[in-house]
Amino acid sequence: MVDFLLNTVKPHFNFWVYVILMMIGLWSLIAKNNLIKKMMGLAIFQTAIILFYVSLGVKDGATIPVLESYGDYAEKAEKAEPAGPEVAPPDATPAPVVVNPADTYANPVPHVLMLTAIVVGVATLGVALALCEMIYKEFDTLEEDELLRKIKALHDDA
């Protein structure tokens, strides 16, 4: 058990958590009865994906992807920065590979992608909540089983 945790889970701990979060989201998305809860599940589902992306861009000992040693903006940029860790010193371990200076910055690509994904997420959330309000206006409930019953009744009455 401990072996499993240390060897299998620990190196990928973030990924395991993302899977768990995602499953929590997915489960409530399907199983929850309340539409707003469903949406919350969906939101958690999406953040889990974002967590996954961000995790894959992490480099040990790397700093945020804002360059600090370039051009005449360098020292000003430092000031403008909110507290971030200093540039990590080159790896202390005697590594055979020469440390690439690029390794000191986190991979910016997943961040870029996830900015987009977050925006998409909130946009979807807005639309869904708008729909929830309209559904509530029409049917006076947000519980799915009641809704389905009412819709069915609507169909049968007709």
């Binding site: 190196p11 990928h12 395991w16 995602m22 040990d60 690439n100």
Partner: peptide, 24 residues
């Protein structure tokens, strides 16, 4: 879904590896 996802994870580079394909 979880099994599928974890199956994929089994093959991931270690978390924080700067030499992972995505990073370099």
């Amino acid at each position: 879904t979880g099994i599928v996802l974890l199956y994929g994870i089994s093959d991931f580079p270690t978390f924080g590896d700067p030499r992972s394909p995505a990073n370099s």
